[in-house]
């Protein structure tokens, strides 16, 4: 329970960065922190006390394995996160080239 709450606290730090910061790179970093915390939350849900890693061993039967389903879902989610982050960074680079700044309020002013 305390671990879940700490994970949600990490999520809300990322949320604070997305909502409150004005630098585009800080917003991207906030998105990254949100992604980390959600991946960790999924894996925490599948953990089991005295569990073994979900890989069969030769010549012995493993009875208690941790839940492999959240791990399989998170494995795809990590790579998708990298692709999304690269896309957002490339958009930020183009914005910097066009306007010469990362500050979102100045970008808004320049447009109007």
């Amino acid at each position: 329970m305390i671990l879940y709450l700490l994970c949600i606290v990490l999520f809300s730090i990322g949320l604070y960065g997305v909502l409150r910061k004005r630098n585009l790179v800080k917003i991207i970093i906030g998105l990254g922190i949100i992604e980390y915390s959600m991946n960790l939350f999924f894996v925490l849900l599948g953990y089991r006390f005295q569990g073994r890693a979900p890989i069969d061993a030769q010549d012995q039967a493993i009875l208690t394995m941790v839940d492999p389903l959240p791990q399989a879902l998170v494995l795809t989610s990590i790579v998708i996160g990298l692709g999304v982050m690269a896309l957002v960074i490339s958009i930020a680079i183009r914005i910097y080239e066009k306007y010469g700044t990362f500050d979102i309020t100045k970008i808004k002013k320049l447009k109007g």
Binding site: G83, A86, S90
Partner: peptide, 15 residues
């Protein structure tokens, strides 16, 4: 995955 990520990096550098 490998060549896709390398293409992303190459696009960022060539720009």
């Amino acid at each position: 995955v490998g060549l896709g990520l390398f293409a992303i990096f190459l696009a960022l550098v060539l720009l």
